[in-house]
Lab assay of single mutants.
Amino acid sequence: EEPGTYGVALYRFQALEPNELDFEVGDKIRILATLEDGWLEGSLKGRTGIFPYRFVKLCPDTR
């Protein structure tokens, strides 16, 4: 996996908008950016989108 910051999904998130990223509990999401209003941008399984930061637990930065 690529170096960078990752978050592990604490809850299932179902995308409601085309720019959102849906995921299941336990998915490991690569964090790409921190956005305003409590949203993160991340990538998972070749898809990129935004999601609420409270749905993931950030992992320590590992290489």
Rank of each mutant, 00 (worst) to 15 (best):
Q14C: 09
W39G: 03
G49Q: 00
R54V: 12
Y11E: 13
P52C: 03
P60H: 13
A33K: 13
G49L: 00
V8K: 07
R47G: 04
R54L: 05
R12W: 00
Q14Y: 11
D27W: 06
I31A: 00
D27I: 02
T48Y: 03
G38S: 05
F13M: 12
V25W: 06
E36L: 03
R12K: 09
E20P: 00
R12G: 12
L21P: 02
F13D: 05
E17A: 14
F23S: 06
Y6R: 03
L40F: 08
L40I: 09
Q14M: 07
P52I: 02
E24Y: 07
D27L: 04
K57P: 02
P3R: 12
T48N: 07
E24V: 06
W39H: 02
Y6V: 11
T62A: 13
D27V: 00
Q14I: 10
F55K: 02
K57H: 11
R47K: 15
G7A: 15
G49M: 03
P60A: 12
T34G: 06
L32G: 04
L21Y: 00
V8E: 10
F13G: 03
R30G: 06
R63P: 15
G7D: 01
R63M: 14
Y6N: 02
A33E: 05
Y11K: 15
A33G: 10
T62R: 13
A33L: 04
G42K: 00
D22G: 13
P60W: 09
L10N: 01
E24T: 09
K28N: 07
L58K: 05
Y11L: 12
Y6L: 09
P3E: 13
E41I: 07
V8G: 02
R54W: 09
W39Q: 09
V56A: 06
D37M: 00
Y53N: 15
G7M: 13
C59D: 10
P60Y: 12
C59H: 10
G49V: 02
E20R: 09
R30Q: 09
K57F: 03
L58S: 04
S43Y: 12
F55C: 12
G38H: 07
R47P: 00
F23T: 02
Y6S: 04
V25F: 05
V56N: 03
Y53K: 15
G38W: 00
I50F: 04
G46P: 04
E20M: 14
Y53L: 14
Y53V: 15
L21E: 04
L44D: 08
Y11S: 10
G42S: 01
F13W: 06
C59R: 08
F13N: 13
E24I: 07
L58I: 12
G42P: 01
V25Y: 07
R47M: 03
G7F: 02
E17G: 14
R12H: 07
F13Q: 10
R47N: 06
A33I: 03
E36S: 10
P18K: 08
F55D: 04
L32W: 02
V56Q: 04
I29H: 04
L35K: 15
P3V: 11
L35W: 04
P52K: 01
E17L: 13
R47I: 06
E20Y: 14
V25A: 12
P3M: 15
D27E: 09
A9N: 01
L21A: 00
R47L: 07
K28R: 13
R12I: 02
F23Q: 02
V56Y: 06
L21N: 01
F23C: 03
G26S: 03
N19A: 10
W39S: 05
K28H: 13
L44G: 01
G46F: 03
Y53F: 12
I29C: 01
G38P: 00
P3L: 14
V56D: 03
E41A: 07
V8R: 09
P3T: 15
D61C: 12
E2H: 15
F51S: 01
G26D: 05
N19M: 06
L32V: 11
G4V: 13
G7P: 01
F23Y: 03
E36D: 12
G38T: 00
A9Q: 01
L16R: 15
Q14P: 05
T48S: 08
L58V: 12
F23M: 10
I29N: 01
A9H: 00
E2D: 11
L35G: 08
R12M: 05
D27T: 04
E20V: 03
E2V: 10
P60V: 11
E17V: 07
E2K: 06
D27N: 07
K57A: 08
V25S: 07
L32E: 08
F13R: 15
D22P: 15
L21S: 05
A33R: 14
E36R: 08
V56T: 05
Q14H: 13
I31L: 03
G26I: 02
T62Y: 11
E20L: 12
L32S: 07
W39F: 11
A15G: 14
S43R: 08
S43W: 08
I50M: 09
L35F: 09
I29W: 01
G46D: 07
G49P: 00
F51P: 06
P18M: 07
S43A: 12
G46I: 03
T5S: 09
E41M: 14
G38N: 06
D37H: 09
I29L: 05
G7V: 13
T34I: 11
L44R: 08
F23H: 02
W39M: 12
P18E: 13
N19D: 09
T62F: 11
T5H: 07
L58G: 03
T34C: 08
E24S: 08
E36P: 11
P60N: 09
N19C: 06
T5G: 02
Q14E: 11
T48F: 06
I29A: 03
A9R: 01
G7T: 01
L10F: 01
A15H: 06
K45Y: 08
Y6F: 14
L21K: 02
R54M: 05
R47Y: 09
A15V: 04
L16N: 15
R12T: 10
G38E: 04
R12N: 13
L10H: 05
P3I: 15
E24W: 07
E17D: 10
Y53A: 15
T5D: 05
T34D: 12
L40C: 15
I50Y: 06
I31T: 03
K45I: 03
Y11D: 09
T48H: 08
T5A: 12
L44W: 06
E2R: 08
A15T: 14
V8A: 03
R63Q: 10
T62N: 14
E17H: 15
P3Y: 14
D61R: 09
E17T: 11
A33F: 03
T5R: 10
K57M: 06
E36N: 11
R30K: 15
R63N: 15
G26E: 00
E36H: 08
Q14F: 07
G49C: 07
G4F: 13
R47C: 05
W39Y: 11
E24N: 13
K45V: 02
Y11V: 12
N19W: 08
R47D: 02
L40T: 07
T34P: 05
D27Q: 03
K28T: 09
L58Y: 06
T62S: 14
A15W: 04
D37V: 05
G49N: 06
I50K: 15
Q14L: 09
P18N: 09
G4R: 10
L35M: 07
P3S: 13
K28I: 09
G26T: 01
G4N: 13
L35R: 15
E17Y: 10
D37A: 07
E36I: 00
T34M: 12
E1K: 13
A33D: 10
W39E: 08
Y53S: 15
L32P: 03
C59A: 07
E1W: 05
L21Q: 07
R63V: 12
L58H: 05
E20A: 11
L44M: 05
T48W: 00
A15N: 05
R47H: 09
E36K: 12
Y6A: 02
I50V: 12
A9W: 04
F13P: 04
S43V: 08
K45F: 08
A15I: 02
I50P: 00
E24P: 02
D37I: 00
Y6I: 11
V25H: 07
P52V: 01
D27H: 00
D22W: 04
G26R: 01
N19R: 11
L35H: 12
R47T: 03
E1Q: 03
L32F: 04
R30E: 08
A33W: 04
L44E: 00
E2S: 05
G46N: 08
L35S: 10
K57Y: 07
N19Y: 09
G38D: 11
Y11N: 11
Y53I: 14
G26A: 01
L21C: 01
I50L: 08
L16H: 15
E1S: 12
G26W: 00
L10Y: 01
E1R: 12
F23W: 04
G26L: 04
D22V: 03
A9C: 02
Y53E: 15
P3H: 14
T48E: 04
L32C: 04
G49Y: 01
G42I: 03
I50Q: 12
L10R: 05
T48A: 03
P52E: 05
D37C: 10
F13T: 01
G49S: 06
G46C: 03
